[in-house]
């Protein structure tokens, strides 16, 4: 009985799913097409981009840190992969995706150096790394949208479908599964939450806390880069500041999914729910064809209400 209870997701994690279902039902009252298979499959495809980014963010937030370098790791990976493909050299084109992912891991390690070795608050260090990446990108592309295109593999990742299921969604779920295994079945997952709760105690228990921090930021960089590759495949190009609109929704999705921003407590399954919720909310708000102003206002209010409900529910237990 106990093991069953342990394996069930916590109510915190189920909460955003409830919200997502309510959004679909509420939305379908005004727009019946929302219940259609096409619309929902399209939402899963779009959610995958945010979803991959949010997985990386969850790992870092579990640690009690935050990664603000997501926008330009994403854009950087997109620029690298599309320019390699656009170079016309088949060998370089084949290396497009691995090179972009490697770039993400490298930036993650740079992030780790600042946070784990220099002990700079991650919020500031990753911000500085982000602006340096912006600088490098502007320097390299001359401030214009970089030339290049997506390879067939990248397009497949982003827009293909497998028996009606979007490939992007499959990729998202595969990464989620792999990461869930890593967090559940390895010491790494436990150390992650342990550092989030109390870094000093974890260090005193003999855990090499810097290596855990390095690994977490490297994973986050990898996820951001994968998101960049997929988005480049979706748009068939890379463009300046393509990552900017993703930073805050990523954090919102993680937190709505029940992960504490202070670290230590949270789950990947909750993050997946949070991503579905945010994606559906954004999509339904745009289907409603209201102005940008109201979209922002309603988005902000609903996030606040969701967070308040989470706190209320926890308090009443």
């Amino acid at each position: 009985m106990n093991t069953i209870k342990q394996n069930l997701p916590s109510p915190d994690a189920l909460f955003p799913y409830l919200g997502a279902v309510l959004l679909i039902l509420g939305g379908s009252y005004f727009f019946p097409q929302i219940l259609g298979v096409d619309y929902l499959a399209q939402q899963l495809q779009i959610a995958a981009f945010l979803g991959v980014l949010a997985l990386g963010a969850t790992v870092v937030i579990l640690l009690g840190h935050i990664d603000l370098s997501v926008p330009w790791v994403l854009a950087g990976a997109a620029i690298i992969s599309t320019s390699l493909v656009g170079s016309g050299n088949p060998a370089l084109a084949a290396a497009a995706i691995p090179a972009a992912l490697l770039f993400g891991v490298l930036v993650g390690i740079v992030n780790g150096v600042g946070v784990a070795i220099l002990r700079i608050p991650s919020m500031v260090w990753t911000l500085a790394v982000n602006s340096m990446l912006l600088g490098v990108a502007v320097l390299n592309t001359g401030g214009f949208n970089p030339k290049g295109e997506a390879s067939p593999a990248m397009t497949l990742l982003a827009t293909g479908d497998l028996a009606g299921i979007p490939v992007a969604f499959v990729v998202w779920m595969a990464v989620t599964g792999a990461m869930a295994l890593l967090l559940k079945r390895s010491g790494f997952g436990r150390y992650l939450s342990a550092i989030g709760y109390n870094e000093k105690a974890t260090f005193l228990s003999g855990v090499s806390t810097p290596s855990v921090i390095f690994a977490a930021f490297a994973i986050a960089g990898l996820c951001s880069a994968l998101g960049g590759v997929m988005l480049a495949g979706y748009a068939n190009q890379a463009y300046q500041s393509m990552g900017d609109p993703f930073l805050l929704p990523t954090i919102a999705a993680v937190v709505i999914g029940g992960t504490s921003i202070l670290g230590g407590r949270g789950s990947l399954i909750g993050t997946v729910g949070g991503v579905l919720f945010i994606t559906l909310l954004t999509s339904i708000l745009s289907v409603m064809q209201i102005t940008d102003a109201w979209r922002n206002i309603i988005f902000g209010l609903i996030i606040i209400v969701m967070l308040l409900l989470q706190t209320l529910r926890r308090k009443s237990q």
Partner: peptide, 10 residues
């Protein structure tokens, strides 16, 4: 983060 979206909307 949430209130910022609200204020920008206003």
């Amino acid at each position: 983060l949430a209130t910022a979206s609200l204020f920008v909307g206003l």
